[in-house]
């Protein structure tokens, strides 16, 4: 495993000068690259290094640093090794190259990231809507999207239920039990 990892790191470093590697004590390697390098490094890993299987594409929102981190996870069936390729993109203008010509299924992941984080993949051919329907708000998976506030603004209690009773209070009245301490803060 050690030799394979060293070989991969050497070859990647010689081809992609901006790649910063990180090794783990299990079968995993990490490469951080600039966003311009993404299509070429992924294509290189797939075609030359036998990382044929695209496991996952995901995005982490680092709100404090004003950046998105997009992570591509590849798996090599021959070397039995995971490679993470990660890049940071500007949160205000999130643009990344589309890679669905390398792996077709990447299209689905990109559609999700586009909708949930607002990342624009250049040249992504996809129908407008994926999971959300008639959505006009900001991309909902961003950290600054407040679900509670959105729900309070959008949904309301059905009228005619103002006299609805608290189940706990009804039970207490009927049985004379005391409300446990932890439940007191939820009391209406």
């Amino acid at each position: 495993m050690k030799e394979i990892k060293t070989k991969i790191i050497e070859r990647i470093k010689s081809h992609f000068q901006d790649a910063v590697e990180r090794d783990y004590d299990y079968n995993r390697l990490d490469f951080s690259v600039k966003k311009e390098t993404i299509p070429s490094i992924l294509f290189y890993l797939k075609d030359e290094m036998n990382f044929k299987h695209l496991s996952h594409i995901t995005c982490v929102d680092w709100l404090e640093e004003k950046e998105f981190e997009v992570v591509f996870i590849l798996w090599s069936y021959t070397d039995r090794l995971q490679v993470y390729v990660r890049t940071r993109i500007d949160r205000d203008h999130p643009v990344l190259d589309n890679i669905d010509m390398i792996w077709r299924q990447a299209n689905t992941y990109e559609r999700e990231l586009k909708e949930m984080y607002g990342i624009n993949f250049t040249g992504l051919e996809a129908p407008e809507e994926f999971l959300l329907e008639d959505w006009e708000g900001p991309p909902p998976m961003r950290r600054d999207f407040d679900t509670r506030e959105y729900a309070a603004r959008t949904y309301y209690t059905r009228p005619g239920r103002e006299d609805a009773q608290d189940v706990r209070e009804t039970i207490i009245k009927r049985t004379g039990e005391e409300l446990p301490d932890f439940a007191k803060k939820y009391k209406r």
């Binding site: 809507e129 994926f130 999971l131 959300l132 329907e133 909902p140 998976m141 950290r143 679900t147």
Partner: peptide, 13 residues
């Protein structure tokens, strides 16, 4: 798809 989105991953955060 889109008939069953429950935002689990958002809730997990």
């Amino acid at each position: 798809v889109g008939y069953l989105h429950r935002a689990f991953e958002k809730l997990m955060e």
